[in-house]
Protein backbone atom coordinates (compact mmCIF):
# COMPACT_ATOMS: atom_id res chain seq x y z
CA UNK A 1 0.00 0.00 0.00
CA UNK A 2 1.34 3.36 -0.71
CA UNK A 3 -1.31 5.93 -0.11
CA UNK A 4 -0.10 9.44 0.43
CA UNK A 5 1.26 10.18 3.89
CA UNK A 6 -1.05 11.62 6.51
CA UNK A 7 -0.37 13.72 9.59
CA UNK A 8 -1.51 12.82 13.09
CA UNK A 9 -1.24 15.61 15.66
CA UNK A 10 -0.14 14.42 19.12
CA UNK A 11 -3.14 16.04 20.83
CA UNK A 12 -5.55 14.16 18.56
CA UNK A 13 -4.31 10.75 19.67
CA UNK A 14 -6.52 10.23 22.77
CA UNK A 15 -9.63 10.99 20.71
CA UNK A 16 -8.47 8.73 17.91
CA UNK A 17 -7.97 5.87 20.34
CA UNK A 18 -11.36 6.53 21.92
CA UNK A 19 -13.04 6.34 18.51
CA UNK A 20 -11.12 3.22 17.55
CA UNK A 21 -12.25 1.79 20.87
CA UNK A 22 -15.82 1.61 19.60
CA UNK A 23 -14.79 -0.97 16.98
CA UNK A 24 -11.66 -2.53 18.42
CA UNK A 25 -9.95 -3.44 21.65
CA UNK A 26 -7.29 -0.75 21.67
CA UNK A 27 -3.97 -1.37 23.43
CA UNK A 28 -1.44 1.40 23.89
CA UNK A 29 1.63 2.02 26.05
CA UNK A 30 0.39 3.72 29.21
CA UNK A 31 2.12 4.86 32.35
CA UNK A 32 1.38 2.00 34.76
CA UNK A 33 3.42 3.52 37.59
CA UNK A 34 5.96 6.33 37.96
CA UNK A 35 8.59 4.26 36.20
CA UNK A 36 6.82 1.53 34.24
CA UNK A 37 5.05 1.66 30.89
CA UNK A 38 2.79 -1.22 29.88
CA UNK A 39 0.59 -2.02 26.90
CA UNK A 40 -2.86 -1.82 28.41
CA UNK A 41 -6.35 -1.44 27.09
CA UNK A 42 -6.76 2.28 26.54
CA UNK A 43 -9.31 4.24 28.51
CA UNK A 44 -9.84 7.92 29.11
CA UNK A 45 -7.95 8.01 32.39
CA UNK A 46 -4.90 6.30 30.93
CA UNK A 47 -1.78 8.40 30.57
CA UNK A 48 -0.20 7.62 27.21
CA UNK A 49 3.57 7.10 27.17
CA UNK A 50 4.62 7.05 23.53
CA UNK A 51 8.09 8.54 23.89
CA UNK A 52 9.93 5.57 25.30
CA UNK A 53 10.12 1.82 24.99
CA UNK A 54 7.50 0.06 27.11
CA UNK A 55 8.72 -1.96 30.09
CA UNK A 56 7.16 -5.14 28.69
CA UNK A 57 6.77 -6.03 25.04
CA UNK A 58 3.21 -6.20 23.66
CA UNK A 59 3.39 -9.99 23.29
CA UNK A 60 0.84 -10.30 26.10
CA UNK A 61 -1.85 -9.15 23.65
CA UNK A 62 -1.22 -12.16 21.38
CA UNK A 63 0.11 -14.56 23.94
CA UNK A 64 -1.47 -13.79 27.31
CA UNK A 65 0.49 -14.73 30.41
CA UNK A 66 -2.53 -16.80 31.45
CA UNK A 67 -4.82 -18.13 28.78
CA UNK A 68 -7.73 -20.52 29.15
CA UNK A 69 -7.57 -23.20 26.45
CA UNK A 70 -10.66 -25.15 27.42
CA UNK A 71 -13.01 -25.96 30.27
CA UNK A 72 -14.03 -29.44 31.32
CA UNK A 73 -16.74 -30.98 33.45
CA UNK A 74 -16.96 -34.55 34.68
CA UNK A 75 -20.40 -36.07 34.92
CA UNK A 76 -20.97 -39.09 37.10
CA UNK A 77 -23.19 -41.80 35.81
CA UNK A 78 -26.18 -41.98 38.20
CA UNK A 79 -26.58 -45.71 37.51
CA UNK A 80 -22.93 -46.68 37.90
CA UNK A 81 -20.88 -44.34 40.14
CA UNK A 82 -17.66 -45.85 38.84
CA UNK A 83 -18.42 -44.46 35.41
CA UNK A 84 -18.14 -40.83 34.46
CA UNK A 85 -18.14 -38.87 31.24
CA UNK A 86 -16.38 -35.64 30.42
CA UNK A 87 -17.58 -32.59 28.59
CA UNK A 88 -15.01 -30.35 27.00
CA UNK A 89 -15.58 -26.86 25.75
CA UNK A 90 -12.96 -24.97 23.78
CA UNK A 91 -12.65 -21.33 24.69
CA UNK A 92 -10.96 -19.38 21.96
CA UNK A 93 -11.38 -15.66 22.37
CA UNK A 94 -10.21 -13.24 19.72
CA UNK A 95 -11.82 -9.97 18.77
CA UNK A 96 -10.72 -7.09 16.53
CA UNK A 97 -7.80 -5.35 18.16
CA UNK A 98 -5.53 -2.40 17.48
CA UNK A 99 -2.13 -2.04 19.09
CA UNK A 100 -1.03 1.55 18.96
CA UNK A 101 2.53 2.68 19.61
CA UNK A 102 4.58 -0.47 19.23
CA UNK A 103 8.25 -0.19 18.27
CA UNK A 104 9.85 -1.88 15.27
CA UNK A 105 11.63 -4.35 17.57
CA UNK A 106 8.31 -5.28 19.24
CA UNK A 107 6.79 -6.05 15.86
CA UNK A 108 9.83 -7.98 14.77
CA UNK A 109 9.20 -10.10 17.86
CA UNK A 110 5.83 -10.99 16.37
CA UNK A 111 7.49 -12.02 13.12
CA UNK A 112 9.52 -14.49 15.17
CA UNK A 113 6.38 -15.69 16.98
CA UNK A 114 4.76 -16.16 13.56
CA UNK A 115 7.52 -18.54 12.45
CA UNK A 116 6.82 -20.77 15.42
CA UNK A 117 3.08 -20.40 16.03
CA UNK A 118 1.61 -19.39 12.71
CA UNK A 119 3.60 -21.08 9.93
CA UNK A 120 4.59 -24.55 8.83
CA UNK A 121 3.04 -27.81 9.84
CA UNK A 122 1.81 -26.84 13.29
CA UNK A 123 -0.22 -23.74 13.81
CA UNK A 124 -1.41 -22.50 17.17
CA UNK A 125 -5.09 -21.58 16.64
CA UNK A 126 -5.21 -19.29 19.67
CA UNK A 127 -2.25 -17.24 18.55
CA UNK A 128 -3.32 -17.19 14.90
CA UNK A 129 -6.82 -15.97 15.70
CA UNK A 130 -5.50 -13.03 17.72
CA UNK A 131 -2.75 -12.23 15.26
CA UNK A 132 -5.18 -12.06 12.35
CA UNK A 133 -7.63 -9.92 14.30
CA UNK A 134 -4.98 -7.33 15.16
CA UNK A 135 -3.87 -4.15 13.42
CA UNK A 136 -0.48 -2.79 14.42
CA UNK A 137 0.44 0.89 14.48
CA UNK A 138 4.18 1.30 14.95
CA UNK A 139 6.22 4.34 15.94
CA UNK A 140 9.66 4.43 14.39
CA UNK A 141 12.53 5.00 16.80
CA UNK A 142 14.44 8.22 16.51
CA UNK A 143 16.33 7.92 19.78
CA UNK A 144 17.82 4.49 20.44
CA UNK A 145 18.52 3.74 24.10
CA UNK A 146 21.82 2.65 25.67
CA UNK A 147 20.56 -0.92 25.64
CA UNK A 148 19.32 -1.00 22.03
CA UNK A 149 21.07 -3.29 19.55
CA UNK A 150 18.42 -4.05 16.91
CA UNK A 151 20.82 -3.41 14.04
CA UNK A 152 23.10 -6.19 15.30
CA UNK A 153 20.31 -8.74 14.84
CA UNK A 154 19.27 -7.57 11.37
CA UNK A 155 16.54 -5.19 12.54
CA UNK A 156 16.58 -1.41 12.61
CA UNK A 157 15.00 1.62 14.27
CA UNK A 158 13.07 2.30 11.04
CA UNK A 159 12.22 -1.34 10.27
CA UNK A 160 8.72 -1.65 8.78
CA UNK A 161 8.33 -5.42 8.77
CA UNK A 162 5.10 -6.66 10.34
CA UNK A 163 3.48 -3.25 10.91
CA UNK A 164 0.20 -2.08 9.35
CA UNK A 165 0.74 1.63 9.92
CA UNK A 166 4.04 3.46 10.42
CA UNK A 167 4.31 6.65 12.39
CA UNK A 168 7.41 8.81 12.10
CA UNK A 169 7.80 11.47 14.79
CA UNK A 170 7.73 14.98 13.30
CA UNK A 171 7.09 18.41 14.78
CA UNK A 172 3.75 18.44 16.59
CA UNK A 173 2.90 14.81 15.91
CA UNK A 174 3.51 11.93 13.57
CA UNK A 175 3.76 11.39 9.84
CA UNK A 176 1.58 8.35 9.14
CA UNK A 177 1.87 5.85 6.30
CA UNK A 178 -0.17 2.72 5.69
CA UNK A 179 1.80 -0.44 5.00
CA UNK A 180 -1.15 -2.81 4.58
CA UNK A 181 -4.82 -2.59 3.71
CA UNK A 182 -5.72 -3.06 7.36
CA UNK A 183 -3.52 -0.08 8.10
CA UNK A 184 -5.21 1.96 5.40
CA UNK A 185 -8.49 1.40 7.20
CA UNK A 186 -7.10 3.03 10.34
CA UNK A 187 -5.88 6.06 8.36
CA UNK A 188 -9.48 6.79 7.29
CA UNK A 189 -10.16 8.24 10.74
CA UNK A 190 -10.65 12.02 10.87
CA UNK A 191 -7.69 12.41 13.21
CA UNK A 192 -5.43 11.91 10.21
CA UNK A 193 -5.13 14.94 7.94
CA UNK A 194 -3.22 15.42 4.67
CA UNK A 195 0.48 15.37 5.55
CA UNK A 196 2.37 16.14 2.36
CA UNK A 197 4.11 19.09 4.00
CA UNK A 198 5.55 16.74 6.66
CA UNK A 199 6.87 14.13 4.23
CA UNK A 200 10.25 15.76 3.85
CA UNK A 201 10.74 16.14 7.62
CA UNK A 202 9.76 12.51 8.14
CA UNK A 203 12.22 11.33 5.52
CA UNK A 204 14.99 13.34 7.11
CA UNK A 205 14.13 12.08 10.59
CA UNK A 206 14.32 8.52 9.30
CA UNK A 207 17.60 9.06 7.52
CA UNK A 208 19.08 10.68 10.59
CA UNK A 209 18.43 7.72 12.88
CA UNK A 210 21.66 5.90 13.24
CA UNK A 211 22.35 2.93 15.42
CA UNK A 212 25.71 1.45 14.79
CA UNK A 213 25.85 -2.30 14.33
CA UNK A 214 27.86 -3.11 17.42
CA UNK A 215 27.98 -6.90 17.11
CA UNK A 216 29.00 -9.05 14.18
CA UNK A 217 27.11 -12.26 14.80
CA UNK A 218 27.92 -14.02 11.51
CA UNK A 219 29.82 -16.86 13.16
CA UNK A 220 28.01 -16.84 16.50
CA UNK A 221 25.66 -19.79 15.75
CA UNK A 222 28.67 -22.07 15.19
CA UNK A 223 30.67 -20.61 18.06
CA UNK A 224 27.88 -21.33 20.52
CA UNK A 225 27.80 -24.98 19.46
CA UNK A 226 31.57 -25.15 19.80
CA UNK A 227 31.32 -23.82 23.34
CA UNK A 228 28.46 -26.15 24.30
CA UNK A 229 30.39 -28.49 26.59
CA UNK A 230 32.90 -25.99 27.99
CA UNK A 231 32.93 -24.10 31.27
CA UNK A 232 32.35 -20.89 29.30
CA UNK A 233 28.73 -20.79 30.47
CA UNK A 234 29.56 -21.19 34.12
CA UNK A 235 32.04 -18.34 33.84
CA UNK A 236 29.77 -15.87 32.06
CA UNK A 237 26.67 -16.63 34.11
CA UNK A 238 28.31 -16.48 37.53
CA UNK A 239 26.32 -13.41 38.52
CA UNK A 240 22.99 -14.56 36.99
CA UNK A 241 20.40 -15.23 39.70
CA UNK A 242 18.31 -17.46 37.41
CA UNK A 243 15.05 -15.55 37.72
CA UNK A 244 12.67 -15.31 34.78
CA UNK A 245 12.68 -11.53 34.28
CA UNK A 246 14.68 -11.60 31.03
CA UNK A 247 12.40 -14.18 29.43
CA UNK A 248 9.15 -12.56 30.52
CA UNK A 249 10.02 -9.11 29.19
CA UNK A 250 11.39 -10.60 25.95
CA UNK A 251 9.34 -10.00 22.79
CA UNK A 252 10.42 -13.35 21.34
CA UNK A 253 10.35 -15.76 24.28
CA UNK A 254 7.33 -17.96 23.70
CA UNK A 255 7.71 -20.90 26.06
CA UNK A 256 4.67 -21.95 28.01
CA UNK A 257 3.35 -24.48 30.45
CA UNK A 258 -0.07 -26.11 30.48
CA UNK A 259 -1.84 -27.02 33.70
CA UNK A 260 -5.28 -28.29 34.60
CA UNK A 261 -6.80 -26.24 37.35
CA UNK A 262 -9.31 -28.54 38.99
CA UNK A 263 -12.27 -27.30 40.95
CA UNK A 264 -14.57 -30.04 42.13
CA UNK A 265 -15.87 -32.07 39.20
CA UNK A 266 -14.70 -29.59 36.62
CA UNK A 267 -11.97 -27.16 35.89
CA UNK A 268 -10.07 -25.43 33.19
CA UNK A 269 -6.93 -26.08 31.23
CA UNK A 270 -4.72 -23.02 31.20
CA UNK A 271 -1.60 -22.06 29.35
CA UNK A 272 0.83 -19.83 31.26
CA UNK A 273 4.20 -18.34 30.40
CA UNK A 274 7.14 -20.48 31.39
CA UNK A 275 10.82 -19.67 31.46
CA UNK A 276 13.86 -21.72 30.51
CA UNK A 277 15.67 -19.96 33.35
CA UNK A 278 13.62 -21.93 35.89
CA UNK A 279 14.73 -25.24 37.33
CA UNK A 280 11.26 -26.73 36.89
CA UNK A 281 11.24 -26.01 33.16
CA UNK A 282 13.27 -29.12 32.36
CA UNK A 283 12.61 -31.16 35.47
CA UNK A 284 11.58 -34.61 34.28
CA UNK A 285 9.05 -36.94 35.92
CA UNK A 286 11.88 -39.26 36.94
CA UNK A 287 13.42 -36.48 39.00
CA UNK A 288 16.30 -36.08 36.55
CA UNK A 289 17.00 -32.58 35.32
CA UNK A 290 19.15 -32.15 32.20
CA UNK A 291 19.68 -28.47 33.03
CA UNK A 292 20.41 -28.59 36.73
CA UNK A 293 22.25 -25.26 37.08
CA UNK A 294 21.91 -21.73 35.78
CA UNK A 295 24.88 -22.31 33.46
CA UNK A 296 22.98 -24.92 31.41
CA UNK A 297 19.82 -22.85 31.55
CA UNK A 298 21.47 -19.65 30.38
CA UNK A 299 23.33 -21.60 27.71
CA UNK A 300 19.94 -22.63 26.42
CA UNK A 301 18.69 -19.07 26.43
CA UNK A 302 21.62 -17.76 24.42
CA UNK A 303 21.87 -20.93 22.31
CA UNK A 304 18.22 -20.85 21.37
CA UNK A 305 18.25 -17.22 20.34
CA UNK A 306 21.58 -17.13 18.55
CA UNK A 307 22.17 -20.67 17.30
CA UNK A 308 19.22 -23.09 17.29
CA UNK A 309 16.62 -20.58 16.14
CA UNK A 310 18.67 -19.30 13.19
CA UNK A 311 19.52 -22.85 12.18
CA UNK A 312 15.81 -23.83 12.17
CA UNK A 313 14.41 -20.62 10.70
CA UNK A 314 16.67 -19.63 7.84
CA UNK A 315 19.19 -17.60 9.75
CA UNK A 316 16.74 -15.45 11.71
CA UNK A 317 17.94 -14.75 15.24
CA UNK A 318 15.45 -15.28 18.04
CA UNK A 319 16.25 -11.81 19.34
CA UNK A 320 15.12 -8.36 18.24
CA UNK A 321 17.75 -6.34 20.09
CA UNK A 322 15.16 -4.44 22.14
CA UNK A 323 17.49 -4.56 25.15
CA UNK A 324 14.73 -5.17 27.70
CA UNK A 325 16.51 -8.20 29.18
CA UNK A 326 19.51 -5.99 29.91
CA UNK A 327 17.41 -3.23 31.43
CA UNK A 328 15.37 -5.37 33.80
CA UNK A 329 18.09 -7.78 34.88
CA UNK A 330 18.50 -7.47 38.66
CA UNK A 331 22.26 -7.88 38.23
CA UNK A 332 22.59 -6.04 34.89
CA UNK A 333 23.76 -9.13 33.01
CA UNK A 334 24.29 -7.92 29.45
CA UNK A 335 23.56 -10.46 26.73
CA UNK A 336 25.66 -8.37 24.31
CA UNK A 337 28.66 -8.87 26.55
CA UNK A 338 28.16 -12.64 26.54
CA UNK A 339 28.01 -12.65 22.74
CA UNK A 340 31.22 -10.61 22.65
CA UNK A 341 32.91 -13.02 25.05
CA UNK A 342 31.79 -15.90 22.83
CA UNK A 343 33.37 -14.20 19.81
CA UNK A 344 36.75 -14.49 21.49
CA UNK A 345 36.43 -18.27 20.97
CA UNK A 346 35.53 -18.10 17.28
Amino acid sequence: MSTAGRFLATDKIPDLLKRLGTQYHVYAPVQASDTTVLFQEFNEEAQLALEREATLSPKEVFFPQTERLLTYTYQKDAEDPKKSSIQIEETLEASPTVIFGTRPCDVRGLAIFDMVFNQGQWVDPYYRARREATTIVTILCTEPENTCFCTSVDGGPADTQGSDVLLTPVTGGYFAEAVTEKGDGILQDDAFVPGDDKAQEAREARDKVALERELDLARTPQTILKLFSTDFWEQVTAKCISCGACTYVCPTCYCFNITDEDAGLGGERIRTWDSCMFYHYTLEASGHNPRPTKAERYRNRVGHKFSYHPSTYEGTFGCTGCGRCIKVCPVSLDIRQILREAQVHE
Binding site: A32, S33, T36, L38, L56, Q65, I241, S242, C243, G244, A245, T247, Y248, V249, T259, W273, S275, F278, Y279, H280, V328, P330
Partner: peptide, 30 residues
Protein backbone atom coordinates in the same frame (compact mmCIF):
# COMPACT_ATOMS: atom_id res chain seq x y z
CA UNK B 1 -3.06 -1.82 41.62
CA UNK B 2 0.57 -2.52 42.48
CA UNK B 3 0.53 -6.31 42.17
CA UNK B 4 -1.35 -6.27 38.90
CA UNK B 5 2.01 -5.43 37.33
CA UNK B 6 3.72 -8.49 38.83
CA UNK B 7 4.71 -11.01 36.16
CA UNK B 8 5.68 -13.82 38.54
CA UNK B 9 9.23 -13.80 37.21
CA UNK B 10 10.50 -14.53 40.75
CA UNK B 11 13.29 -11.97 40.54
CA UNK B 12 12.30 -11.01 44.10
CA UNK B 13 12.74 -14.60 45.24
CA UNK B 14 15.97 -15.28 43.42
CA UNK B 15 17.58 -12.03 44.53
CA UNK B 16 16.62 -12.66 48.16
CA UNK B 17 19.60 -13.90 50.17
CA UNK B 18 17.33 -15.77 52.58
CA UNK B 19 15.15 -17.44 49.94
CA UNK B 20 17.09 -20.64 50.05
CA UNK B 21 14.47 -23.11 48.77
CA UNK B 22 15.02 -21.71 45.26
CA UNK B 23 14.73 -24.77 42.96
CA UNK B 24 12.19 -26.46 45.21
CA UNK B 25 10.08 -23.38 45.93
CA UNK B 26 6.46 -24.21 46.67
CA UNK B 27 5.32 -21.45 44.31
CA UNK B 28 6.44 -23.47 41.29
CA UNK B 29 5.93 -26.97 42.55
CA UNK B 30 3.77 -28.92 40.11
Amino acid sequence: RELERCIRCYACRNACPLCVCQDVCAAESR
